[in-house]
Design a protein around this nucleic acid. Structure first.
Lengths: 369, 369
DNA sequence: TCTCCTTACCCAATCGTTTGGGTGAGTACT
DNA sequence: AGTACTCACCCAAACGATTGGGTAAGGAGA
């Protein structure tokens, strides 16, 4: 039994037709062809009576029945790595908003960035007969996109791109370039990148954009300065620790391809006795609402997450309508804050001394003094 | 056209029946009554053939058709304030997991904590004919729950409770008490609370639990030390600023009923020249993944968010089955970290001097020195 | 041989909408 | 007066699955 149909069954077209003494198909046509006078289906007068009664009785069409007949559900499926990642959650909010505007409902599922789970979740959605899919978790080299294409499933990508398929993303390469310019301009010459997962275009592109621009400016980024990482704080912390351990002298600036990784790295640096913004610059990506509010506000590249989601929904609508659509890359914007505000600072030897001699020492006590 | 039905229409019962030369109802019965030999519906042999062919052809029942006939959609609706709030997003993950285990799909929508929008979203879900609702955003005194009850809509509450209706929440009162004990034990006697929105039981209960325990211990919390706030970082920052402005001498410890508000407050304190963990203790709630990774790790009360979501889904399943269910309050756990680790510190006059004379001055330069 | 069970199926209605194709009444035109 | 249009509807067949109620064939028991 349906939620709405316990106390009293939901009102149907048949109910309305009976009460008005006309045929159910007439009611359907009147209610269906909204506004345009129900093209020859009923008189002006009848149409009004139908609409009035429908409103009075609170008629709402049964989507099961409609779907059964029309073969469309007006539902779309969205698959993301995890909704507890604020970036994806925000994009999904955009999707939901835009989808609602065109009268579509959305199912979301988490794939935990696991290939098998991606497939499984996609199948569940297709079994639900969604009209289309938005994939927010596509992996480089995944065969899922090809399979879906072969099966003629309408879908678009979001957040991450995949060459040859329509996607709504941030211009991650451009974002990486912004960071390179900023760090170069503030005098840094020794940098490192916490690069995220190698299967995600976001991290890869942000890294590539940075490196590309850095080279143009005359700098270099040795391979051991680019560390893969998970996208969460824990991953950032580990990468930060690894960085301090392996790279000597430590870089004066670190670009983490994601705010959470940046926060984790900041934790690692601080634990090692470095003051972020003074001893080492840190830059994140996405400009989540946290970045500006952190104890040491984080420089970050703002990606229009909500807009990326909205665009994805719009693109999917067009794909479902059979149109060809082109990928969209939303322009990012750099917000400079205290974590990287000062011009490149102390000499490396001094900083390294800090790191070695005072894991939780000197700068701590200095702060208290 | 459905996603799965573009290239080749999805296989139906009729297709299977035709290929096997038997009636569609026989196929239905075999496939439906899983395992138990399809009680007299077909011979062992036929049943096997049916099942084999179904698997071979990749048959999956059309939920539209099933739903039309059975009047249930196997879909549940979840309404939350906003999914970009990591707390609700995590609870939703729990709901989704548990719902999937009982073969239910979930729709989520954001209500932005707005009463009209809550109603609107609920109506959309009911129009979708969901089998039940999980409300994660109930407001104190809202009439929505009564209306849903009158309409016999199966629903449960999550995250926030509402007396008289089944809910899956954290034991927020108990959590508040944990914080009171901790701050009292570490020597604090002058405290303030950043209390969240007055319409949310979470903030109200956490505050009440704290105050109750504080009184038991012999302390007091004057009314002007309890500041309402939004639940996000921005809200926490504002409340923090307000606190420093209005309450003199400033409290030695602040309990924010939510990690994000705590982070915002930490920002405000720091901007005012106070070092969190030294000059002022801060405690949050929820122990989101950030808390432990912050530059100054945040003491926080862990609420089992995933479990709260899973429980809510389980409760709803039972409500939909017509059972009576009791509310569940999940026990919280306190994690003490640096933001409140040291015993209550400087004399108030010294701290107040810091605040007045050095909004971004003294402690900053001290840190660099 | 007749009756009564089982077994293994089949039949057909039904859920609520949509939609191609009527149809009868009234009007306009020749 | 006959023909041709509209207009304002009605009819009925889908869509795919479920389900209460047959029924024919075969065997057991009397």
């Amino acid at each position: 039994m349906n939620a709405s149909g316990r106390g009293r069954a939901a009102v149907t077209l048949k109910d309305l037709a009976a009460e008005l003494g006309i045929h159910v198909s007439t009611v359907s046509r009147v209610l269906h062809s909204d506004k345009d006078v129900a093209r020859g289906a009923a008189s002006e007068e009848t149409a009004r009576r139908v609409r009035d009664l429908a409103k009075l009785r609170g008629y709402s069409p049964d989507p099961q029945a409609t779907g059964l007949r029309t073969r469309r559900t007006r539902a779309i499926g969205v698959i993301v790595p995890r909704l507890s990642d604020i970036v994806l959650a925000t994009m999904y909010e955009g999707v939901e908003e835009a989808a609602a505007e065109s009268n579509h409902s959305t199912f979301v599922m988490n794939s935990h960035d696991d290939l098998d789970e991606q497939r499984r979740k996609a199948e569940i959605m297709l079994a639900r007969r969604v009209d289309g899919l938005i994939l927010g978790d596509v992996h480089a080299g995944s065969s899922l996109v090809d399979d879906l294409t072969k099966r003629h499933v309408p879908f678009v990508l979001m957040n991450r791109r995949y060459p040859g398929f329509p996607s709504s993303t941030c211009d991650d390469t451009g974002g990486g370039r912004l960071v390179a310019d900023h760090l170069w301009d503030t005098g840094h010459r020794s940098v490192a990148i916490i690069a995220g997962e190698p299967y995600a275009s976001t991290g890869v592109d942000r890294t590539a954009g940075f490196v590309e621009r850095w080279h143009e400016l005359g700098g270099e980024v040795p391979g051991d300065r680019v560390l893969p990482s998970r996208f969460d704080t824990e991953g950032g912390r580990r990468a930060g620790e690894e960085l301090l351990e392996q790279v000597r002298p430590a870089p004066t600036a670190v670009f983490a391809v994601n705010d959470f990784a940046a926060i984790g790295a900041m934790g690692a640096f601080r634990a090692a006795g470095l003051v972020v913004g003074q001893d080492i610059a840190v830059v994140g990506f996405n400009d989540t609402s946290l970045a500006a509010q952190l104890p040491i506000p984080l420089t970050s590249v703002r990606s229009p997450m909500l807009e990326i989601g909205r665009t994805a929904a719009g693109m999917l609508r067009r794909v479902m309508a059979g149109e060809e659509v082109a990928s969209v890359r939303h322009p990012p914007e750099l917000f400079v804050r205290e974590s990287s505000a000062s011009v490149a600072v102390r000499d490396a030897p001094v900083r390294d001394a800090l790191i070695r001699e005072a894991p939780v020492g000197e700068s701590e006590s200095a702060r208290i003094a």
